[in-house]
Amino acid sequence: MKTASFLKPQHLVPIRNLNLRAKLIVEGMIAGLHKSPFHGFSSEFLEYRHYLPGEAASKIDWRKFAKTDRTMVKLFEDETNLFAHILIDKSASMGFASENRMSKFEYACTLGASCAWILIRQRDAVGVASFDEDISLYLPPKSTNTQLKNIIGSLDNLKPAAPTNFGKALDMMARGVRKRGLCIVISDLFDDPQNIIHGLRHLRFKKQDIIVIWLLDPFEQQIDKSVTYHFHDLETGKTVALDGKTASSFYLNGLNEHRNAVKRACRELQIDLESVSTDEPFQKALLRILKKRSRLF
């Protein structure tokens, strides 16, 4: 795999067009691959047909040719049989961004759009839902190019607001899912761990293969100790004044406990949990996630 320089999130900040962002990310990423990471992701053998002149010689099944002395081409079942949902957390906490970085929500939308792009390119059916306390947007999965435009257009219009109720939102989502498929949940998971686990368990019960992308701002992983903070909670509106050391100490302890609880639950539910920092290049994050997926399947 080529480890060429990735597009860093901060370079994409000036690009307001989500479509363009997703395109840049996905194309840049695929250009560096020897083969598509999604090849075989959901495709199954269908039949042989005769080779037509003008087609690429690489498509000929040479093994068949050796056996039958006929130039045949292998055909696969269409990818539309994968139903993927991209669930993006749009609670107020996702609006947090430190030091002029991309906010978690923007990052989530970009990442979600990129995933949608990849999936639709593979002709999988992709749907999008955004949630806070409830499901506020839902686009059912489709594999058309129009769907991609709709997804990007819808995500463009979203703004982070309202408190999180992860469990309730995923509950509602799970109720609407009919077929087995893939769910990509992009969230900061700032909710009660039991609530989160409850929602994920419900989705898993609905035979959904789940990828949880836990988005965190770098500041949320390492609070600067040299500053005294007057914290204002974006969701509840509460304020608290703490010096950097106290804040860092208590926050990191709490976050670790939270992470451990979520990790433990994901392991039990066979959910793929991936932590992504908002300063991490998109391609790198995507590749990491997809490589892990390819190892799992």
Partner: peptide, 28 residues
């Protein structure tokens, strides 16, 4: 050397419970 005070709209205060406030006072 006293740290500067920054007002910050933060994602969540769920990890800053009362002990943190008490600890902060003790530290002061």
């Amino acid at each position: 050397r006293r740290p500067k005070t920054v007002r910050l709209d933060f994602s969540s205060l769920r990890f800053f419970h009362n002990d943190a406030v008490r600890s902060n006072r003790t530290r002061k």
